[in-house]
């Protein structure tokens, strides 16, 4: 594994949606103004920001599944090559894998085993993956609604293992999970990264992100305003530079639970 090898490079990405006003006129709603992240081999990068702030849109932009009224600016490169639609066709689903937020993304009418195998996986790989995540053999034959929340989550992750994923996009992997289960999910991510995957995790939950991530990118008001290592975060407020990031740290329940006015902080930073 080469820790310097860049898997995903997102440069100055902007995404806006054309929206209608009350009548017939339209305006552009810019969700992402300027987003820059770089994911290396073996790295877990967490993008942290308020929910509803448009982080998920980034994952959709990488996968090329934005709705038709969206327009994208900037550049996305995968392993040094520009990620075009034809390259996406080749890589998405095999090398680029998305782990969705919840089980509702699984096909409710298809047995879990079949979904995990997808088009390319073999029976051995499936058994191997299920064994690895402590899934019972009978889980293969179950439909998504028959799986418990934790099992479903492990099923979602095994889809990533079975394909030779190089880049995993995980959208809000932790909400609804207990702390144990969230920690377990993070452990699985760490394992995958240690095997050479690059993982881009999108979350609002810093505590979960800190358990596994190497790098944390702070997303606020359409921009990545700060990028720091997870160690900085663990060290505490003084190791952090940006005032918003500092406030984020202080707002954690275990660190003081201080409220702050985000827009005031941003003014101070400029």
């Amino acid at each position: 594994m080469n820790k310097d090898k860049i898997i995903l490079e997102v440069e100055d990405i902007s995404v806006s949606f054309r929206m209608y006003d009350k009548g017939l006129s339209k305006h552009d709603l810019t969700v992402i103004k300027k987003l820059n992240v770089t994911v290396h081999e073996g790295e877990i990068l967490a993008i942290v920001g308020a929910s509803g702030s448009g982080k998920s849109v980034l994952a959709h932009a990488v996968l090329g599944i934005l709705p038709s009224n969206a327009s994208v600016g900037g550049e996305i490169r995968y392993c040094g090559k520009q990620l075009t639609n034809s390259l996406r066709k080749e890589k998405v689903g095999s090398e680029i894998i998305m782990i969705p937020q919840s089980v509702t993304y699984l096909d409710p009418l298809m047995k879990a085993g079949k979904q995990v195998r997808g088009l390319k996986g073999t029976k051995q790989q499936l058994e191997e993956a299920f064994r690895r995540y402590g899934l019972d053999k009978s889980a293969e034959k179950k439909y998504p609604f028959q799986l418990s929340g934790g099992m479903a989550r492990r099923v979602l992750i095994s889809t990533a293992v079975i394909s030779d994923a190089k880049l995993i996009l995980a959208d809000e992997p932790t909400p609804g999970l207990s702390e144990d289960m969230a920690a377990e999910t993070m452990r699985h991510f760490r394992e995958l990264a240690d095997q050479g995957c690059g993982i881009l995790m999108i979350t609002h939950d810093i505590e979960a992100a800190l358990k596994a991530a190497d790098t944390i990118a702070v997303f606020y008001d359409g921009e990545t305003i700060d990028c720091c290592t997870a160690d900085d975060f663990r060290q505490g407020r003084d190791a952090l530079k940006h005032p918003y990031t500092k406030a984020l740290w202080s707002a954690l329940p275990e660190n003081g639970f201080l409220s702050a006015d985000a827009s005031e902080l941003m003014k101070g930073a400029l």
């Binding site: 209608y20 017939l24 006129s25 339209k26 810019t30």
Partner: peptide, 15 residues
Amino acid sequence: MKNMRKHGILNRRTL
């Protein structure tokens, strides 16, 4: 989310 720009008149909704 404040960046708004008006567009032309004959858009999809007008059509």
